[in-house]
């Protein structure tokens, strides 16, 4: 009897907790004034206390990825606030929350009506809780990125291991497969895979997978070859699409490529120093290779770009104050000069 009573009490407290948390700040598209204009009877510019409307007198909540992130570097170099691109040199007193990944950024800005952040273009498709901002009047789409009018873009780069100057088991075959795989990015099939996974291809395709199989006999042999990749997490989607197609469509079924992506910082260290002595074969970066890293590379470390991605400034879907933003305004926002959303609207 007492146990039953206790169970009831526990249930009651659980339901109490659940109801108290029910009105979460996540945006329901039905309640969202920007999506459903029929329900929108209050002027978004007003300072009324209705929780559904966007209150421009509130402060701007800043979100930024941590130093070392390729997305962060691209964003801040792009908007012209280079001081914080690589280091955490914020102005005094500016409070910035740091989500730990692209997805975390979207979920945090998506649950904070007054937040502003940035993320990779290919990730935001279908996410209704955030709103992508146009940059300098240009809407971020694949077309505007390809024709170069959308400025906040970056290359996904790769760099391969120096097979001649490092000791490696089965080196000849591994080298051949690694070279074939990076050449695959530029084939017709490779570019289709990259595009289908959200990457944006800017150069014309050269050759087909057929030609690659002829060029590298190991692809049609029976040799067992295992490759490892490392580096940026942003390339993960594009990379896994390429790996699946490549390993699935070559005659040699004993070739496997396993991706363990941790961050752009691990790309060059992964192929030169490795993880406890085991060197990876191909490293990926969602930013340009910096001078410190270039110094570690030799001529045999072939590096080039794989495809292009755009970085997009995002706000919460409830935010009706802005839809277009400039680099100058973004810089002032992240410098802490524009404190409230009203300031931002006035500055635009």
């Amino acid at each position: 009897m007492k146990k039953i009573l206790l169970a009831c009490a526990l249930l009651a407290s659980c339901s109490l907790l659940a109801t108290s948390c029910n009105n979460t700040p996540t945006v329901n598209p039905d309640d969202d004034p920007s999506v459903n204009p029929d329900d929108d009877d209050n002027n978004p510019g007003d300072d009324d206390e209705e929780p559904e409307s966007f209150d421009t007198s509130r402060n701007v909540n800043l979100y930024s990825r941590e130093a070392g992130s390729g997305t962060r570097e691209c964003f801040f170099e792009g908007i012209g606030y280079g001081d914080v691109a690589k280091e955490d040199k914020w102005e005094d007193g500016v409070v910035v929350a740091s989500p730990t990944s692209n997805g975390d950024m979207m979920s945090q800005v998506g649950s904070d009506p007054y937040g502003i952040g940035y993320c990779s273009l290919d990730g935001i498709g279908g996410n209704t809780s955030i709103k992508a901002l146009s940059y300098e009047g240009v809407t971020p789409t694949e077309d505007t990125v390809i024709d170069g009018s959308y400025a906040l873009q970056r290359n996904f780069n790769y760099v391969i291991r120096d097979y001649e100057n490092t000791t490696v088991e089965n080196g000849e075959n591994r080298s051949a497969v690694a070279h074939a795989f990076i050449e695959f990015f530029n084939t017709i099939e490779g570019q289709t895979q990259i595009a289908s996974a959200g990457g944006i291809v800017t150069t014309a395709a050269t050759g087909t997978l057929e030609e690659l199989i002829e060029k590298y006999p190991v692809l049609s042999s029976n040799e067992t070859v295992q490759l490892y990749t490392c580096g940026s997490t942003s390339v993960e989607k594009v990379l896994s699409a390429c790996i699946n197609y490549f390993t699935g469509n070559i005659p040699n079924k004993n070739i496997t490529i396993s991706a363990s992506q941790t961050g752009s910082g691990a790309a060059v260290t992964g192929i030169t120093e490795g993880n406890s002595g085991t060197l990876a074969d191909i490293g990926f970066l969602s930013r340009e290779i910096n001078d410190e890293e270039l110094a570690k590379l030799t001529d045999n470390n072939i590096h080039s770009s794989m495809c292009v991605d755009a970085v997009v400034a995002i706000v919460n879907a409830e935010n009706t104050a802005v839809s277009d933003i400039t680099g100058e305004t973004l810089t002032s926002i992240y410098k802490g000069e524009l404190k409230t959303w009203a300031d931002v609207v006035n500055a635009l």
């Binding site: 941590e66 130093a67 992130s69």
Partner: peptide
Amino acid sequence: FSPGSTIASAMLSGINEASGFGY
């Protein structure tokens, strides 16, 4: 109600992106 960071959380957050000095 403002965000912060503890020593342990600062060590963990962003360690995957860190290299060189930051690591």
